[in-house]
Design a protein around this nucleic acid. Structure first.
Lengths: 121, 121
DNA sequence: TTGACATATTCCGTTCTGGGAATATGATGT
DNA sequence: ACATCATATTCCCAGAACGGAATATGTCAA
């Protein structure tokens, strides 16, 4: 079967560092291809190809203006990624979470902090 | 140059759906390879290969116990991904953000809501 | 030691990739 | 019509991927 297509999935699309850089540039606002080429050190054909991938997964949208094409970020498509990593966020913030829980418990119950907070992992 | 190695980067490592599934399984706690093979519908060699990739980028860690190998999630390595998508979170929550801003302005200034909120994007 | 079990590795084939170079498409201005 | 600018596409290549099948490694039990 070989590797999945980069356009199969937002996860595959953002696996490429250059593509993430392009999204970062577009996060500042709608821009024509040339502006991306200038900001990053990528050749124009490469930028166009990456933009094609990003647009096929819906991460960017295009609008023609004269002989330029303005690309704009469509951040909604990053939600699946955000949701997926969010599941792990509390794990790498575990220490802080426990502190928060502890403080919340202190505030709420005023001295009855004894919940063992189910030590999974 | 061809495509980047899956072990080059956490982003590349999690691009594969099967690898994300494995991480999801391990989020519940340390498990031997066989348990992952049972929970998911992936052959044992494939699971081992995916675990190797995940371990090379640091996403999982291994511990030998008898003839089994217990794999455990190392969620810290997902932070770069979390941080990267976090930059976009406020964009896909924009409507809520604007509502929040609006309400804050209402509360703070009591009726002077006229700031055009700089329409970037 | 021998056999059964748990996991890792190697070999193979198909598929898809990112980059470079060259070229095609398309719009603007004169 | 023409030259120029802005972008997209095609052709090519080396490299890497996943999956399957087979095999190697390593551990326990008797």
């Amino acid at each position: 079967m070989a590797r999945a297509s980069t356009t199969a999935d937002v996860f595959n699309a953002i696996a490429e560092a250059h593509r993430r850089q392009i999204l970062d540039v577009l996060a500042a606002g709608e821009k024509p291809v040339g502006a991306i080429v200038d900001e990053l050190a990528i050749s124009q054909p490469q930028v166009s190809k990456h933009l094609r991938v990003l647009s096929e997964v819906g991460l960017v949208q295009c609008r023609a203006l004269g002989r330029r094409r303005l690309y704009r970020l469509n951040p909604t498509c990053l939600r699946p990624v955000g949701d997926w990593v969010a599941k792990y966020e509390h794990l790498w913030n575990e220490r802080l979470d426990r502190l928060d829980d502890y403080l919340s418990d202190l505030q709420r119950r005023e001295g009855k902090r004894d919940k063992p907070s189910q030590g999974a992992l």
